[in-house]
Simulated assay, not measured.
Amino acid sequence: MLRVDFSGRELARLRMARSVDPLWEIALSLHMLQTRQAALVFDPWRREVHGALERSGLTAAVRGLMLLCPPAAYFPDFLTPGGEPDLDTGLEKVMSTPRQRLAAELSRLYAGAPLPSGVRRLAEGSPEALRWLGTALRRYYTVAVEPYLPAIRTEAAADRSERAEAALTGGAEGLLASYGVLPEWRCEGTALRAPYPMDREIRLDGRTLTLVPGFFCVRAPLALADDELPPVLVHPLSPAPGWLERSRPSESTPPAAQLIGTSRAQLLGLLDRPMTTTGLAAALDLAPSTTSRHTSVLREAGLLTSRRSGLCVLHRRTPLGEALLEGALR
């Protein structure tokens, strides 16, 4: 069980990451490839990625990455430096990890056992090994994560809208309580309890805890092993079964897209639950100004409603919008 007890000051400083972290998604997806967790949800992705890795000639490189990132209670913190919104900056931080830290974390990973030769060279800080690591992580990302970014961003944006609404209506306590709806997670006043491979307490000591959504995270959260690092808690987005099929573009243009355009039809389709303009823009990879124009047109057509909640505007699909998406309009 994982325990996080917040003081009033620490609770007020609780923050959400803007979206998924590319390096956490790399690590989490590597875990998923090595297990059968959430088979109904992720097996179609596993089959697709295994085939793509083989066609790309990346199978051996990914086996090397798995030696660094096993689905165990511990894997090295330097692989997920955090706080970097883009892959390039994150990879630069990984490749700049000091030799002393590489040696300490990789030795902990193998707990006194002999290090495999490639891992040993990395632990020694070999520039060639670090370049290999950066290249392998980037190539793996382009095959196993990047093609699925539309679905990942959609889930992350919907989650952020839900958390933002909880924070606007209930403050920091409301934001914390919103995580209590996750399976086996509990919020007890200003304390958070979650499933974890071992008993562990995250001591904040006045620091800010950042909550990071994880698409490939299943049930239990993940936290950095080193308590001296800025505290992070990665929580599951829990995509529903069939997410991969639903993310594929239809071979024929849906009736709603024929009537209102593809982007507006996609926007309307995202509103299974209320979302902010910012969340919609992130999910659709559009500029906020463009998204705002789309919501204005849809609102004037009676297909969605917009309501201000604190500093945000939440958009909801109307029954007319539902009917349009379902093709019930004639």
Score class of each variant (00 low, 15 high):
residue 9 R to G: 15
residue 11 L to F: 03
residue 18 R to Q: 11
residue 19 S to T: 14
residue 24 W to E: 13
residue 24 W to G: 08
residue 33 L to Q: 15
residue 39 A to E: 14
residue 48 E to M: 08
residue 49 V to A: 09
residue 57 G to N: 04
residue 59 T to R: 15
residue 61 A to E: 14
residue 84 E to F: 10
residue 85 P to R: 09
residue 87 L to R: 10
residue 87 L to V: 08
residue 88 D to P: 03
residue 97 T to F: 01
residue 99 R to P: 00
residue 103 A to D: 14
residue 104 A to C: 11
residue 117 S to R: 15
residue 118 G to T: 07
residue 123 A to G: 08
residue 124 E to A: 14
residue 125 G to T: 07
residue 125 G to L: 07
residue 125 G to M: 10
residue 130 L to R: 07
residue 137 L to F: 05
residue 143 V to F: 09
residue 147 P to F: 07
residue 154 T to F: 03
residue 157 A to D: 07
residue 157 A to E: 06
residue 158 A to E: 02
residue 158 A to R: 14
residue 164 A to C: 09
residue 169 T to Y: 01
residue 169 T to W: 03
residue 176 L to W: 00
residue 180 G to D: 01
residue 180 G to L: 00
residue 181 V to N: 08
residue 185 W to D: 11
residue 188 E to F: 11
residue 193 R to Q: 10
residue 193 R to E: 12
residue 203 R to T: 10
residue 203 R to H: 13
residue 204 L to F: 06
residue 204 L to C: 05
residue 205 D to A: 15
residue 208 T to Q: 14
residue 209 L to P: 02
residue 212 V to H: 00
residue 213 P to T: 03
residue 213 P to F: 00
residue 220 A to F: 09
residue 220 A to K: 09
residue 221 P to I: 02
residue 224 L to T: 10
residue 227 D to M: 15
residue 227 D to E: 15
residue 233 L to Y: 02
residue 243 W to S: 01
residue 250 S to P: 05
residue 254 P to L: 02
residue 264 R to Q: 07
residue 265 A to T: 01
residue 266 Q to Y: 08
residue 267 L to W: 09
residue 271 L to T: 03
residue 272 D to F: 07
residue 272 D to C: 07
residue 279 G to H: 04
residue 285 D to C: 12
residue 303 L to W: 04
residue 308 R to M: 13
residue 315 H to P: 04
residue 316 R to T: 11
residue 322 E to M: 12
residue 323 A to N: 11
residue 326 E to D: 13
